[in-house]
């Protein structure tokens, strides 16, 4: 269990840190499967949440990273509420997303494009500007058909007066905070 030797996949320090955090968090999982039974998106997962926690306990990084399971988590916290061990399972799903991002592949890029675009938008404007967020997401996803998918919704939102010109009055307000957090994360 406490194998710390470098392995075939030789995790970089950032990956190792997240994996260690996860193993600490999930060490007490007793494989009851209440999480799996509680998940509204379980049908779309290739590995059940219960299996995922076991893979984390065993440090099966490659198998973890192959999975789409954590990208299907919508942070509803039903598993966290019901876990008889009181484990922070939704938070673990978030950490798994970060783990995958550390070792980004095209699949990861596609799955995290929205989160990246969102955070870019926050960094730039201070408050999220929806009309600039979505084009940012389209660009990051690199899927030329994606804007078409949103066209009907965009039209309905425009008709209902729900689209606004981006408000630039807080531009750069969070620049220093983002820079500082980046610096702190690089340091660790």
């Amino acid at each position: 269990m406490n194998q710390t030797k470098p392995q075939a996949w030789s995790p970089d320090p950032a990956t190792r840190e997240i994996l260690d955090e996860l193993r600490g968090e999930l060490g007490a999982c007793m494989q009851c499967g209440t999480c799996t039974a509680s998940c509204p998106n379980g049908f779309a997962m290739d590995v059940t949440p219960r299996q995922m926690w076991r893979m984390v306990q065993f440090g099966m990084l490659d198998r973890i990273l192959e999975s789409r399971t954590f990208w299907m988590c919508s942070s509803c916290y039903m598993c966290t509420l019901r876990c008889p061990r009181g484990l922070k399972l939704t938070r673990a799903m978030g950490a798994l997303k970060r783990l995958a991002r550390e070792r980004g592949t095209w699949k990861v890029r596609r799955n995290s494009a929205f989160y990246d675009a969102f955070m870019d938008n926050v960094e730039k404007y201070g408050r999220v500007q929806e009309t600039s967020l979505m084009p940012g997401y389209f660009l990051k996803s690199r899927d030329p058909l994606l804007p078409l998918h949103y066209l009907p919704l965009g039209v309905r939102m425009m008709r209902a007066g729900k689209l606004h010109v981006p408000d630039g009055s807080r531009k750069g307000r969070l620049k220093a905070l983002f820079a500082k957090v980046r610096e702190m994360e690089d340091r660790s």
């Binding site: 978030g94 929205f114 990246d116 955070m119 408050r127 999220v128 807080r170 905070l177």
Partner: peptide, 25 residues
């Protein structure tokens, strides 16, 4: 006054620290 974004559900998958720093601000 001058409140900013809380990070919604996007900060957690990107940065653990930012996930707390944004709402904490």
């Amino acid at each position: 006054p001058d409140w900013t974004c809380c990070g919604a559900s996007a900060a957690e998958p990107v940065s653990r620290l930012m996930n707390y720093a944004l709402p904490a601000r």
